[in-house]
Amino acid sequence: MSMGMSKIVKTVSSVVFPFIVIYGLYIIAHGHLTPGGGFQGGAVVASGCAMLLVAHGSIWTIGKIREKQLSILESTGAVAFILLALLGLVFGTVFFKNFLVGNKFLFGEIPGYLSRVANFNTGGVLPLMNFAVGLKVIAGLFAIVLVMAYATSTFKKGEMEDGKR
């Protein structure tokens, strides 16, 4: 039924997919240096997954990943995000404290005042939060598209469950 699109589109989307994913991860990872961040990169990767969905059909896609797994992934991202915020409460003083800024090992360096050098090892807790949110957004947005596409493609014409339960 839903067999996806022509061979050309399938091939091109397969070739472009890793490219989109790595680019989305690049945007997520460089959220504190260049335009981007968790949401933007997540949206890019989710769009890439949506491309696979439209090229190969939702039945193929649901064979690769199910919406329950996506839901769990999303929960993981959300829990990671809120745990990072709670760690601010534990190591710092308040909720959402940026407790990593100022240390020397992990994302702790501080660029000089008004410096314009892009140093990856900065930003405190921001890169970690970017990844948590990125995971969440990827899983969430793709889950929306996947669920809607799969559910509507399995509807038959004129099919409707009876009104009485």
């Binding site: 240096l33 260049t34 949401f39 410096s115 314009r116 957004v137």
Partner: peptide, 25 residues
Amino acid sequence: PIYTSSPGGLMSLPVPQALTLTSIV
């Protein structure tokens, strides 16, 4: 409002951009 190696100067306000991001999602 991003510090990069290009010559900067006046910067547009960052807060509305952050709000807009939230609003888009």
